[in-house]
Design a protein around this nucleic acid. Sequence first.
DNA 1: TTTTGAGTTGTTCGA
DNA 2: GTCGAACAACTCAAA
Length: 479
Amino acid sequence: MPGPTLVWLRQDLRLADQPALHAAVERGGAVIPVFIHAPDEDLQWAPGAASNWWLHHSLQSLNEALNKAGSPLVVRAGPSLDTLRELVVETGAEAVYWNRVYEPARVLRDQGIKAGLRADGLEVRSFNAALLIEPWDVETGQGGPYRVFTPFWRACLQRGIEQDPLPAPSRLPGPEKPPASLTLDDLALLPRIDWAAGLRATWAPGERGAQARLERFLGQSITGYADSRDRPDQDGTSGLSPHLHFGEVSPRQVLRALRDANISLEHKGPESFVRELGWRDFAHHVLYHFPHTPEQPLNPRFEDFPWRESEADLAAWQQGRTGIPIVDAAMRQLWETGWMHNRLRMVVGSFLTKNLRLHWVHGARWFWDTLVDADLASNTLGWQWAGGCGADAAPYFRIFNPQRQGEQYDPDGRFVRRFLPVLKKTETRYIHAPGAGGTLGYPAPIVDLKASRQAALEAFEAIKNTSTSQTKSSSKAQT
DNA sequence: TTTTGAGTTGTTCGA
DNA sequence: GTCGAACAACTCAAA
């Protein structure tokens, strides 16, 4: 009988299609699932408040499932390597398994941990649980990483993205004597002042919540997804982003569910949804190969971009009082529900970086603290794209007109009225520009859209020919 | 090495 | 309201 296996859980908080857990059961011997709280190891990108709220509930749900299966979750706090070593001593574990993560700081950390534990004589294995294609699985004809989505995705599809998900273990052999565990409350992940009512009303963290969300999406919205996904006034998106981030469901399981429901990937809706899963992988690809991008522009020309600094404007944006209804409603949706519709992320991102001309990192930081789906890869890619300095080969400087976006994608103003009750009685023809019709209690725009657009174009002119946009060389790391 | 085709999500203007 | 063209002429990736 082999000695126990520690399964170190991070962003893979599920039992089904769980490669590390599955391999630990296959190995034989006791299986000890472990969660280690070590936010310091994420350096300046430690999880934010909304993300921690989700994590608490996801761990709670996971613990119930693990208990039922026969081996309760062991919760610890402290440096990951030291904690794993302590647990090895306490349990007599002979192996440590985990599923890989791809954030630069964690990649480095995990390399060190793998080497350290192997030097201790342990069997260490890591697995892919989170992506269809891992960052090193595809490369360009020249042998480098991709910087443009479409060729990346073509290469992924050519390679094949479907793989059979693993079944959930029916039973987990627990240790004879379970090691001591902290309670979830000990981790103090929940806010001290309870602002999470809107989150509770919106979300059901955990593996079952993820399955329910997936089933609802496949039953309701996937057929018309190609169009309805752009409509914040409709329930047209999957809402799977936080579940995917925490690994409560895997993209492989999502693909399998599509197949099981006889939904053809050839059709427009499903095809565009699966491409969004591709964007998720692409974000991980870019972050892995360009680890400086959470703070530095992928396109180095933007190092010289003349960003403005204005705490007042930043605060107005954060708090949803810019005087642009679609922007303000979106920022309040974020604050209340911990989530924002994808199109609105582009709209508020463009407004912050182009109209207010504030640095995109300010936006990335605010999203990081307020999103339940905050993910370093996706957040970084999204904000670099919004700022114009990222993986977007378009030959012009893209500036959204938020009023126009509102009129186009929230034509009746239903979304705006939902999050800005002060505009409840505003006529629809004025709902996206109440400044023109005059609405009591709603601020005038803090910036003139036309003039600020012009100023952004001029600022872009200033850096256009400063240098070639050769990206910084990538620093590859091994896992 | 050089060439070629193509690139998530847009806006404005004028017919 | 709708449609097509102009915008300005950039990079990426593959052939």
